[in-house]
């Protein structure tokens, strides 16, 4: 009874309300993109990205999302590229608030594999597009490149998309050359501390693995990983490779500090004894190209010192 009357009423209201929005959109498009104006294909302008990785790609393309989940945590875990002011908080990553989404009136909602169950619900608000970067298939870097291209075409920012992909390749190549020039075939563990005793170690299937491969570095963690490309282990298992360096991603939980000061095992781990522990500012471990670039640059700067400015 209720839903039916709801539908008819809604139908009456939607059209008049959307008219000014359409007009605004047209104006906006005309003002912002005079060059691309001749392309008749409808382009996504108001995009909600339910994944931080896809959000950072959009920001890098110069068309920031209008809504992102958990914006407060984004600032702590992704850091760069920062969310532009005015990006709406849309709720939890896996349960974005539909009423807010509806108010935002996006013309595209970007999702990843974890959102499959709620895509029918999201599809009632706007068309959805799933661009999963992580999964059992692995190779997130390549998939991030593909997603960048796809998003660039969708938003009419092909030039920016190609530039982003090219920049990433250049950064990787330059870093690779610097590592090759420095002469040591390094291996690294890349970890996030979960508490004083456990870390997530990133490996096969993760973005950092792909970056390490491109940089010509060896990942010291050769063990199993899950679909997101990490394994949860006790730090005593980081002892297998005596020549490895340890890359610790911030933010650190409070009790990691105690481990650094007091734990005897920690003090005797090869990389600690040799002074090869490096802290890296936060990088989105489940990110896309901007995260890959950020990781490669931070890693190079940390291990080899600042690059000579080009």
């Amino acid at each position: 009874m209720l839903p039916m009357s709801a539908c008819s009423r809604r139908g009456d209201r939607v059209v008049p309300r959307l008219l000014p929005a359409f007009a605004g959109l047209l104006l906006l498009a005309a003002a912002a993109l005079p060059a691309a104006g001749q392309d008749a294909a409808p382009r996504a302008r108001r995009i909600v990205a339910l994944d931080w990785g896809l959000a950072e790609t959009l920001i890098a393309l110069g068309i920031p999302p209008i809504g992102v989940p958990e914006t407060r945590s984004y600032a702590d875990w992704v850091v760069a590229p920062p969310l532009p002011a005015g990006v709406a908080e849309v709720g939890l990553r896996l349960e974005p608030n539909p009423e807010i989404l509806q108010q935002l009136a996006p013309d595209l909602i970007l999702t990843i594999a974890e959102h499959e169950a709620i895509r029918p619900l999201l599809a009632r608000i706007a068309p959805t597009l799933a661009l999963p970067i992580y999964g059992p298939e692995g190779r997130p870097y390549d998939r991030a490149v593909a997603a960048t291209g796809r998003l660039a075409r969708l938003t009419g920012r092909e030039a920016q998309g190609e530039a982003l992909i090219a920049t990433a390749e250049t950064v990787m190549a330059r870093a690779r050359a610097r590592f090759a020039g420095s002469g040591d075939g390094r291996s690294v563990y890349v970890v996030s501390f979960l508490d004083g005793r456990h870390v997530r170690v990133y490996g096969k299937g993760g973005l950092f693995q792909d970056v390490l491969d491109r940089l010509g570095l060896r990942n010291a963690w050769q063990g199993e990983t899950n679909g997101w490309g990490f394994a949860t282990i006790g730090i005593e298992r980081l002892a297998d490779d005596p020549d490895a360096s340890l890359i610790v991603l911030e933010p650190l939980p409070h009790d990691a500090q105690r481990t650094f000061r007091g734990s005897r095992l920690w003090r005797n781990l090869p990389f600690v004894r040799a002074g090869r522990v490096h802290r890296l500012p936060p990088v989105l471990m489940f990110g896309t190209l901007p995260a890959a670039v950020r990781f490669a640059e931070l890693l190079t700067a940390t291990l080899l010192g600042e690059a000579p400015h080009e």
């Binding site: 990553r93 005793r197 095992l265």
Partner: peptide, 25 residues
Amino acid sequence: MLFNEHYLTGLFLWGGGSLSQQDWS
């Protein structure tokens, strides 16, 4: 946990009672 997933992953490990040790403390 639900609202602070990123910050409390460690809590779940600990809530599960992991016995892994790195010293005699």
